[in-house]
Design a binder for these strands. Structure first.
Lengths: 180, 180
DNA sequence: GTGTATGCAAACCGTTTGCACCTCT
DNA sequence: AGAGGTGCAAACGGTTTGCATACAC
């Protein structure tokens, strides 16, 4: 599953190498270890989990190095960081994987990915109007999934009917979008 | 500027009151002070700044209370939280203010708001496909603004020409929507 | 009067930093 | 050889929590 074709590993490695050289940074084994660990990971991973996995794989690294290396990988676009919540920064390999957005279940924290081309045009339009050079975007949709293994499966039975009342308010406001 | 019509203040106050009563929570002056302070604030504000302003206004509050109250206000949808960066959680009044998205300058941290109806349909489509009940979304676009008072004004000197590819998207249009 | 909110300060947790040692170039 | 990176642990900063007191109900 997580076995990545050697070719791809070499590819990202050499990209990283080139980047480091251009920046006059050292090519240390730790840095490449971090790179590979991320690319061996299909889904999103946070810094600490990355640290743990590296240790498990026998690589002696410190958290400082992990964070440091992540920063470099972000700068050369080999890795993307997603800030999902207050304390939920997750990292993900980025090279030759399509840009996507996220759908998050607020009950089970399950993560889904989707992609809609319209976002690209929205981005271009916004860049144009505001005279911005947009580097990247982050679109997260939060809600409740309706899967059986999700805590929310029982539906909005009693949990917080408390705010179901003001939901009407919200709903009302939401319906007429033209209000702007 | 920040003088809100008394009517609107009363409106949100009574919504909050109803919410507190339904939840069997006390209606304390501190809680209403937090509510009003947020609604007196046009733009985004972080928890600490809120705390400082409350103190300035003569309200004796603790950070704990601010956070506690913010949580309540989030739950009744009177306030929205935006997580912009790692340590950049900002709050904003939400009642009867239209949902918008954000454009952030990575150099000067300036914030712009925009709204595109296509997002609504994207949201509905995603909800449909993934069988989700989507509660809200958060779309942030990050980039470099091209304003004179922005540190980035000096342009891409040497920083990282590595990813200059997508720079072509940036355009030197004439329309200027910039406000505050 | 009762139980919940508050203020204060200490704890918390992910992230960053300072320092002495190590290693890639 | 020496600039630069590393590991470690302590510092950091926004947020949360525990506890004694105060106050809304």
């Amino acid at each position: 599953m997580s076995t990545l074709p050697q070719q791809k590993i070499d590819e990202v490695r050499s990209i990283f190498q080139a980047f480091l050289k251009k920046r006059n940074k050292r090519q240390t084994p730790e840095r490449f270890a971090v790179l590979e660990e991320i690319y061996q990971t299909e889904d999103h991973i946070d810094a600490d989990e990355l640290y743990v996995r590296l240790k498990q794989d026998g690589t002696e690294v410190s958290r400082a190095t992990v964070y440091n290396t992540l920063e470099l990988l972000l700068e050369c676009d080999l890795v993307v960081r997603h800030q999902f919540g207050k304390n939920q920064a997750k990292y993900e390999r980025a090279y030759s994987y399509w840009q996507h957005d996220h759908l998050i279940c607020m009950d089970c924290n399950e993560l889904f990915e989707f992609c809609d081309p319209r976002l690209q045009s929205i981005q271009e339009m916004v860049a144009d109007i505001y005279e911005f050079e947009i580097k990247h975007h982050s679109l997260n949709m939060y809600g409740h999934c309706i899967r059986e293994n999700c805590p929310n499966r029982a539906e909005d039975s009693d949990r917080d009917e408390a705010d179901s009342a003001d939901k009407t308010t919200a709903k009302k406001a939401a319906t007429n979008e033209a209000e702007s």
